[in-house]
Amino acid sequence: MNPTTLKLCLMAVLSLVGIGLYGLMICRNLIKMVIVLQILVKAAALGLILAGQMSSQINLGQSLGITVIVADTIVAVVGMALAVQVQRRLGTLDVDALSSLRG
């Protein structure tokens, strides 16, 4: 693989991670935070595929990528379920309202 492309892809991974972490710091809606987590997971999966590509073991990379996608889908589903439950019990999804545990 072309080194320029490689660096471009790596930059893409890092930027996506940056966007994701930024989103986690900025977003106040719980469901949106779960969405942002998914962006992070995409970045990680891309990173793994890229790693497979870099070490010329694309199938290994694919295998890891699939596992990550499936596993983190489960996490997202549980997260969504929790968010929905929060909405039901508290009537809001705002992070700020969800800060009774402090100090």
Partner: peptide, 24 residues
């Protein structure tokens, strides 16, 4: 519920960082 969702978001963020490390 509050504790649960905080726990989930933070550990998911952590696990993504681990994955990046594994990739490297």
């Amino acid at each position: 519920l509050e504790a649960g969702i905080k726990y989930l978001v933070q550990s998911a963020a952590g696990s993504v960082l681990v994955l990046l490390g594994i990739g490297l």
